[in-house]
């Protein structure tokens, strides 16, 4: 395997691509997280039409490949007169994608808080929003942390699709380098390694959090 042509400049280019990957991941996580929170709360709303609309939204997004969603956003928005750079289209598509998945994950966590907690709070005369805010959500958030961190890995990996609409994140950076020096094996191994170094720590952290949750880490009682 000849290294021919691959030099330090190329490594810097890959690293800058990786930086954009992180940037897009954060946009997707924060935006998708906010929307996902809304989705989760709507999903448990006592107002039936709102619940059903949210179920429809989630089923729709979860039943469509992200790539198709991305194309729809990219072409769809240009129809309405916005000429979009790849970053914006990818951001919007990812935010929608993440909101559906995180919304479902968080809904599951809210529902896994024991019904008896709802009852106890109800019997203390707390209103529904007080019950959610003071009793249920704090417990749900604790349960939700490991799967949310685990999903962040999916987000980082999914940003790779932004390359397809021209956004220069890590994969696109690799493709561009490949176009000039044609060393696909070396380049994509490096790209994979960079993704691995971003995702693996998150995976490990998620597993650690899950173990912590199972065994509990409260302050030990003082004698």
């Amino acid at each position: 395997m000849v290294l021919g042509g691959f030099n330090v400049e190329h490594i810097y280019f890959l690293l800058s691509g990786a930086l954009w990957t992180i940037c897009l991941s954060l946009i997707a996580f924060v935006g998708g997280g906010m929307l996902g929170g809304v989705v989760a709360l709507c999903r448990i709303s006592p107002f039936k039409p709102l619940r059903w609309a949210t179920v429809g939204y989630v089923q729709l997004i979860q039943g469509t490949p992200l790539l198709v969603l991305l194309f729809l956003t990219y072409f769809g928005l240009s129809i309405f007169g916005f000429s979009l750079p790849g970053l914006v289209a990818a951001s919007i598509a990812l935010i929608i994608y993440v909101s559906a998945y995180l919304g479902e994950i968080w809904r599951g966590c809210i529902e896994s808080v024991a019904k008896t907690q709802w009852e106890a709070a109800e019997c203390l005369a707390l209103s529904r929003s007080q019950r959610l805010r003071l009793v249920i959500l704090p417990q749900a958030m604790r349960i939700a942390t490991p799967p949310t961190v685990g999903f962040m890995v999916q987000i980082v990996k999914n940003t790779s699709l932004a390359s397809i609409v021209g956004f220069v994140e890590l994969v696109r950076a690799g493709q561009l380098i490949n176009n000039s020096i044609f060393q696909p094996f070396l380049i994509y191994v490096l790209v994979a390694a960079l993704y691995f170094s971003m995702c693996y720590p998150l995976s490990v952290w998620s597993r650690k959090l899950e173990l912590k949750l199972q065994y509990g880490t409260r302050p030990q009682p003082s004698a």
Binding site: V153, K157, L161, S163, G174, V189, A192, Y195, C199, S203
Partner: peptide, 11 residues
């Protein structure tokens, strides 16, 4: 599990 499918396919 820690690398994107797109990169795997390209590889």
């Amino acid at each position: 599990r820690n690398t994107p499918l797109l990169v795997q396919i390209f590889l």
